[in-house]
């Protein structure tokens, strides 16, 4: 089979899988315990990574912004510029990419491993709906965790920016945060944060699909893990372009 055909076939399988996820997400009963467990794994366990990255990204952005704005004598614009950069795009996208790396690979490898060692069959044989038990819980946990992690990313990014700025110019905390939020509107804040739910859905479904349907032993597990990261990152970057355009369409003022 040609590779383009294979890609299309994979994409078709992916779409059917996503449809199944959407349909079953709202079907009862809910695997609540497992959902909490996955939220713990995906959300809580990712927060140190997100906070540290946020601080670093915010600090670096602030230093670069300062270098540029200084030339125009507009240092007081730094918090505003940084808030726009972080809240509108950098925060959501960087958080999603980090999570796709950490969680996507994890899900791909875990489900792939369960598939090739017959653990998924074992679940089924024990009268458990493995799709609901394994896939739905992970996708939902991603959808729930990503906006929350994005908020964490935004705030740690702003905090990182503040640390970098206050070290250079001694800008005060209250001025910094007041200036950062004063130019933001709700449309700059809510839609970009909520759009990461879509990112979460993409990360969850792509990596669950690859892991859940893994074949070929240990090698297949490795492939599922790698492809989960590659494909989910790629999809979410592409979808981001569409979402940004869409948000702009819904809230023309948000541009």
């Amino acid at each position: 089979m040609k590779s383009s055909e294979a890609a299309l076939e994979w994409f078709g399988g992916m779409s059917i899988f996503s449809g199944q996820v959407l349909r079953q997400s709202f079907a009862r009963p809910v695997e609540l315990t497992e959902l909490l467990k996955q939220t713990f794994e995906i959300g809580w366990r990712s927060s140190p990574l997100i906070i540290l990255s946020g601080l670093a990204v915010g600090g670096v952005l602030s230093i670069h912004t300062r270098a540029t704005l200084e030339r125009f004598g507009a240092e007081s614009m730094i918090p505003t510029a940084l808030a726009f950069a972080v809240v509108k795009e950098t925060g959501p996208l960087v958080a999603a990419l980090l999570i796709s790396g950490r969680v996507g690979a994890g899900i791909g490898a875990e489900l792939g491993g369960m598939r090739v060692t017959e653990q998924i069959d074992a679940l089924e044989s024990l009268a458990v709906d493995s799709f609901k038990y394994l896939v739905i819980t992970r996708v939902l946990a991603c959808v729930v965790a990503l906006p929350l992690l994005t908020v964490l990313m935004n705030f740690s990014g702003l905090a990182g920016g503040f640390l970098a700025e206050t070290m250079i110019s001694g800008m005060s905390f209250s001025f910094y945060f007041h200036a950062a939020f004063s130019s933001l509107g709700f449309s700059d804040y809510i839609p970009p944060t909520l759009k990461t739910m879509v990112f979460g859905f993409i990360i969850g479904t792509v990596s669950c699909h690859l892991g859940y349907n893994a074949t070929g032993g240990a090698e297949g597990v490795g492939r599922a893990a790698t492809q989960s990261v590659v494909l989910s990152s790629m999809f979410l970057i592409i979808v981001n372009v569409i979402l940004v355009k869409f948000i702009f369409f819904l809230y023309p003022g948000a541009g």
């Binding site: 909490l36 467990k37 959300g43 809580w44 729930v144 939020f181 709700f186």
Partner: peptide, 28 residues
């Protein structure tokens, strides 16, 4: 303890989100 941590995570992040909303609303 895990449940508690999930609670802290979800609650804390929602709180931060709310702080952001409040700051923006305040400036508007």
């Amino acid at each position: 303890t895990k449940k508690l941590m999930v609670g802290i995570f979800v609650g804390g992040c929602l709180l931060l989100f709310g702080v952001g909303l409040f700051l923006i609303g305040n400036s508007n």
